[in-house]
Amino acid sequence: MSSSSWLLLSLVAVTAAQSTIEEQAKTFLDKFNHEAEDLFYQSSLASWNYNTNITEENVQNMNNAGDKWSAFLKEQSTLAQMYPLQEIQNLTVKLQLQALQQNGSSVLSEDKSKRLNTILNTMSTIYSTGKVCNPDNPQECLLLEPGLNEIMANSLDYNERLWAWESWRSEVGKQLRPLYEEYVVLKNEMARANHYEDYGDYWRGDYEVNGVDGYDYSRGQLIEDVEHTFEEIKPLYEHLHAYVRAKLMNAYPSYISPIGCLPAHLLGDMWGRFWTNLYSLTVPFGQKPNIDVTDAMVDQAWDAQRIFKEAEKFFVSVGLPNMTQGFWENSMLTDPGNVQKAVCHPTAWDLGKGDFRILMCTKVTMDDFLTAHHEMGHIQYDMAYAAQPFLLRNGANEGFHEAVGEIMSLSAATPKHLKSIGLLSPDFQEDNETEINFLLKQALTIVGTLPFTYMLEKWRWMVFKGEIPKDQWMKKWWEMKREIVGVVEPVPHDETYCDPASLFHVSNDYSF
């Protein structure tokens, strides 16, 4: 037999072997998808029940369902290793196997995995149920939502704001400190077992692309791009910072340095994350009609249902689908009040099986009107990829998912749209002054938050990498806050605090 014939037969044999492996992989994935749908849905439903009704029974049910899901994933991840990716030609099959071969938290021992889940659930519970009591009246206690958040959004009393700011960190942050220390250790162990340098590197892996249509993007490039983007917006932020400082000097004349940092408790919310609520103090042309339409919403008797129905109309107007019937029947759109304790931070849920929901303790404000559009943007994205195989139902990356939500809320905030839905009067006219007011309001929300987020994530990356010793977490946190964000702590904090974890995203294990 000629050498060319042998070569042809060899190629046929290799192709047949690849085809056999690929067919086996497809069969394996079909079985996995069928089983995963049910187990993931049960786990998601148990998590939803806990988040909307925080009880010991629900946390136990959530843990049990989560353990079943984790055990299943660990088993299936091991089985998926049997299919070598280099022998799979079908890109859809390869991407699913690649996702499943990534072990995630299931790489930890059973004891450590359970401990990590306990830590995460405990931190979430402390954050959502933590109360601050009035020292003069111990029976008068406030949760973060709505009590403390209400103070931080609306109060102009310097000392009341300081009390709310400090009490939240003292009551909740200190409880979270030992848990967060354990969390860092276990998450790093999980990341390294998955061949990442640390948990920050694991997060950045979400943005990594290897040879898809000839395109590559590394975790290191992400760090470079983040640094570059921050340097680009820094001059604009510094101008905004100086303008806000001048306006705060008028409101709090004896508390603000004309050349120094801004006190952290005066920036519009509990964390200084969004400066939106400073608009009334900083509006350049106050004689113009108010483009913050909160009062109009209240006057027109809007409620949470109306807010979300208007958001749905907005999405339908640009060619996107209505929310499902189940969305309206199962979402929690208002604070249950004293009936039950719930996690009030707005979140969009894709539970699986076409079950999409939003959890939000909606208030009738323009801020929540825009947040509703943001969260519904997440749901629209979830619905758009719902037909994909189970392992591919995700956003391109976390940042893109947020961008989908944010672009919709930005569009909904324009005076033209607000006028079209009757929240600005029919005779409202846009001119240079109203446009400047609008742009300032947008800058308070968007530009003001960028250094906050950059600095927070930089601190977390450094902590996970071990570049900040545990006994210097708070020292470095406030050094970076002053240097990068231009914000100063109103009272000193020692290493018993854990100020970063006083933010939902940190205590609940979300990256930005």
Rank of each mutant, 00 (worst) to 15 (best):
K68A: 07
E75M: 14
N49V: 03
T27K: 15
Y50C: 05
Q24T: 15
Q42P: 01
A65K: 10
W69V: 15
A25M: 02
I54H: 04
T20I: 04
Q42I: 15
V93L: 06
D38H: 01
W48N: 00
L73R: 13
K68H: 09
T27C: 15
D38K: 01
E35I: 05
E23M: 14
M82I: 06
E22I: 04
N63F: 10
L79W: 15
N51F: 06
Y50P: 01
T20P: 06
N90H: 15
L79T: 15
V59E: 11
I21G: 10
L45K: 01
H34V: 15
Q98W: 12
K26W: 08
F28N: 00
T20D: 05
M62C: 07
L95R: 13
F40D: 15
F72N: 06
L39Y: 12
L45T: 05
L91I: 13
E75L: 14
Q96Y: 03
E75P: 12
D30N: 03
F40L: 13
Q98H: 11
E35H: 04
F72M: 06
E37Y: 01
Y83C: 13
P84H: 04
D38P: 00
E57S: 05
Q89Y: 13
I54R: 05
I54K: 06
Y83A: 07
N33I: 02
F72G: 02
L29C: 00
E35Y: 02
A65D: 04
Q24G: 01
Y41T: 01
V93P: 15
Q102F: 09
V93H: 00
N63M: 13
Y83M: 06
V59F: 09
W48Q: 00
L45Q: 01
K68R: 13
L39M: 13
T27Q: 05
Q42R: 14
E35C: 15
Q24Y: 00
N33Q: 13
E23H: 12
K26F: 06
K31C: 02
N51G: 04
Y50R: 03
L95N: 11
S19C: 03
A46M: 05
E75H: 15
D38A: 01
V59R: 13
A71H: 12
Q98T: 14
N63Y: 08
Q60W: 11
L45H: 03
K31G: 01
Q98R: 10
E37V: 02
H34M: 05
F40A: 14
F28R: 01
L91T: 14
H34N: 04
N64W: 06
Q42V: 15
A25D: 01
L95D: 14
P84T: 07
D30L: 04
E56C: 06
D30S: 01
A46I: 03
F40W: 09
A65Y: 10
V93F: 05
L95V: 08
D67H: 09
W69H: 03
Q60G: 10
Q24I: 00
P84G: 07
K26Q: 13
V93G: 01
L29H: 01
W48T: 00
N90W: 15
T92G: 15
D67V: 09
E22H: 04
L45Y: 03
L73W: 13
H34A: 15
V93S: 05
M82F: 11
W69P: 03
W48L: 00
L39R: 15
Y83W: 05
I54T: 06
L45C: 00
D67W: 13
T92V: 15
D67S: 11
W48E: 00
K31W: 15
M82L: 12
M62Y: 05
F28Y: 14
V59W: 13
N49D: 15
N49I: 05
T20G: 07
I54L: 08
Q98S: 14
N33E: 14
N90A: 15
E56L: 10
Q60R: 14
N33C: 15
V59Q: 10
Q76W: 08
L29D: 00
N51E: 02
Q42G: 05
N61V: 14
P84Y: 03
N90F: 15
Y41Q: 04
D38G: 02
Q96C: 03
Q102G: 12
N51R: 08
Q24R: 02
L29Q: 02
W69L: 14
D67N: 13
A46C: 04
D30P: 01
Q96T: 03
E22G: 06
A65E: 03
S19R: 06
D38M: 02
T27Y: 15
A46E: 03
Q60H: 10
M62E: 02
I54G: 08
D38W: 00
E22Y: 06
L39Q: 14
N90Y: 15
E37P: 04
N51Q: 05
Q96R: 04
Q102M: 06
D30T: 13
L39E: 14
V59K: 10
K26L: 11
D67A: 10
N49T: 12
S19F: 14
E37M: 03
I21D: 04
E37L: 04
K31D: 00
W48I: 00
F28D: 01
P84Q: 06
Y41M: 02
V59P: 03
E75V: 14
Q42A: 02
Q89S: 11
L29N: 00
V59A: 13
Q89I: 15
V59C: 13
L91F: 10
N64H: 12
T20S: 11
L73V: 12
I54D: 05
Q102A: 11
K26C: 09
Y50M: 05
H34K: 01
N33S: 14
I21M: 01
E22C: 05
E75R: 15
L73T: 07
N33T: 11
Q96A: 04
N64T: 14
W69Y: 05
N63T: 09
L91M: 12
K31A: 01
Y83L: 13
V93W: 03
V93E: 05
K26M: 11
Y83N: 01
T20Q: 04
K74S: 07
N63A: 12
H34Q: 02
L79K: 05
A25L: 02
Q96F: 00
T20W: 02
V59M: 13
Q98G: 12
A25E: 01
L91Y: 11
L73C: 11
Y50K: 00
A25K: 02
K26A: 15
Q60M: 11
Y41W: 00
F28T: 01
I21H: 03
P84S: 09
L91E: 12
D30V: 14
A71G: 12
W69C: 15
L39G: 14
E35K: 03
N63Q: 14
N63P: 00
I54V: 11
S19N: 07
D30G: 02
N90C: 15
N64C: 11
